[in-house]
Nucleic acid binder design. Structure first.
Lengths: 306, 306
DNA sequence: CTGAAAGCGCTTACAG
DNA sequence: CTGAAAGCGCTTACAG
């Protein structure tokens, strides 16, 4: 039996998979909508969390990036999930026009969604509260003329929840959310600058801008600097996501940490517990406000002027 | 035979794997040294290239992130590569103290390294020429007092090649590379700022700083701005990698594009061709200089003053 | 050229 | 409680 050690015997996993029906592989599914999946730092952080939990119990990760259109995920993916290769799937499922987890649950394959798609097992970031926290922070600093830089709601479910959170936060602060000017970008830094330009052209008296991600916030700060507006003294700018760059930016950006690795960890734990024939409850990961130097109290003189 | 269509038959891949000895899975190996693997944007870009080629031919990607110490990769990994689960591996292999590809080739499993580790099949970025291009660009703008911000050579093979390229470029420009002041960071933005502080404290008359990655270049620019040095007019700053943020930064950063997705594509093509019993030649991916606004001609008054 | 049988290397249910 | 046998669902080499 110690010959096992000496000869370096390693079980053949394909044989084991065939006989036991278990492959110890889970598919991690990042739908490819735009090329966003390969440029978004959060994707890698989520993967980090999944990997950490899987490594503990010896599960392997098969990465799948199906092309997602309104007709659903591509056939490659359809084949993968019925191939017997995988024991279960964890999928980012936040694109309103098509679900990637639905065909999996239909086939009764254990599945956990990270996102808002309505399914039995899911983990969600508390986008509503995160956005609420942002608005409370900004309004709490005395800002009233606040611009919103978002993204079209049909791109990502989380956007809808963040906007709802902003609305609730505005109401709490006695502001009419519908009166706050809004511009939509596409998550990119460049679009952040462009939105800032549009917003400030019409509303030069804004004292704060809330951006639904950090990269757009960086774009706003660059634009503001370009036209000589000091951040945060003349214009407060806050972001969302707490990507690594947010802390290193100048000024460091006030933002919402959604704990992406924890989203991944929770999803992996949930899937493993489904494998154990338990029925885990869905999980919501709380966010936290990270106050840095890009936001400050509303400049009194500016506030009065409007 | 059209019943196949109707019944939605999908072959069981585990059975196919067992009988044919082929799994159509390749392991993509990103050794976990620090948590760098999950925060480095290049990793995802390389993965993007691998995924694109694999998708074409129906191969799946199993992601492996072995912990790498001087004792070699962890046993999880050792098991994976002998498990019969994978047809081959593509690995980032650039950490001098241990190779991740060596145990694979020893077992005669098809393997392609992305990196400088000496092995039969590899794809490399032309770090030497990339760094040479940087130095030629900076020296060509008339700079002579150039600071170097690098990283310890024992962290990554590519650093050694980039430093050699800088040296060659300096010699071509008639500069003594050994006389150029150097500070070492750790790739992070913060370390870039710290290095800039150290360098400029001793050598306030530097007119240019060459950084071996973009994030450190961002740190330098922030530090320079903080002490009132205009970039690029008073200080030119160049980076390396061309991460997405480099173009969106202010000022947009002059840098070297190493075409990370192409590294991935080339590695995948190479592995697939090994599967076909061909013997592909190793590949070097050329880099290109991307000139943006963070570098400009040396300020004459400053140059004279030194 | 077609079709039935052996075999891939495990796991597991069953007989002893 | 132990050990021999069947079976997982394919592929492929072989007999017809």
């Amino acid at each position: 039996m110690q010959a096992v050690e000496e000869l370096g015997y390693v079980p053949n996993l394909a044989a084991r998979a065939l006989s036991s029906g278990k492959t110890c592989i889970i598919a991690v599914v990042f739908p490819y909508v735009y090329d966003a999946i390969f440029t978004d730092p959060l994707v890698l952080r989520i993967l980090e969390g999944i990997e950490a939990e899987c490594k503990k119990v010896g599960y392997n990760i098969l990465l799948s990036t199906p092309r997602l259109t309104s007709a659903g995920p591509d056939k490659h993916y359809q084949r993968l999930i019925t191939s017997g290769y995988i024991d279960g799937v964890i999928a980012l499922d936040n694109v309103p026009f098509a679900s990637v987890i639905e065909p999996v649950t239909k086939k009764s394959i254990p599945a956990v969604a990270i996102g808002y798609y309505d399914t039995e097992y899911c983990v969600r970031s508390d986008d509503y509260s995160g956005a609420l926290q942002m608005m409370e922070h900004v309004a709490g600093l005395g800002h009233k003329r606040i611009g919103i830089i978002a993204v079209p709601e049909n791109l990502h479910y989380s956007i809808q929840h963040r906007l709802a959170g902003l609305r609730a936060g505005a109401e709490l602060a006695g502001l009419d959310f519908n009166l706050l000017p809004r511009a939509d970008g596409d998550f990119s830094t460049l679009s952040g600058s462009a939105c800032a330009a549009r917003l400030l052209a019409v509303h030069p008296d804004l004292t704060a801008v809330i951006c639904l991600n950090d990269r757009m916030a960086m774009g706003v700060i660059q634009y503001a600097r370009g036209i000589g507006l000091d951040v945060p003294n003349r214009l407060s700018v806050v972001g969302y996501d707490d990507i690594p760059m947010a802390a290193a930016f100048s000024p460091p950006i006030t933002t919402i940490d959604q704990r992406a690795p924890e989203l991944g960890r929770a999803a992996a734990r949930m899937l493993l517990s489904i494998f154990d024939h338990r029925s885990p409850s869905s999980v919501q990961i709380p966010t936290s406000l990270v106050v840095r130097q890009s936001s400050s109290v509303a400049d009194q003189s500016n506030t009065e002027r409007g």
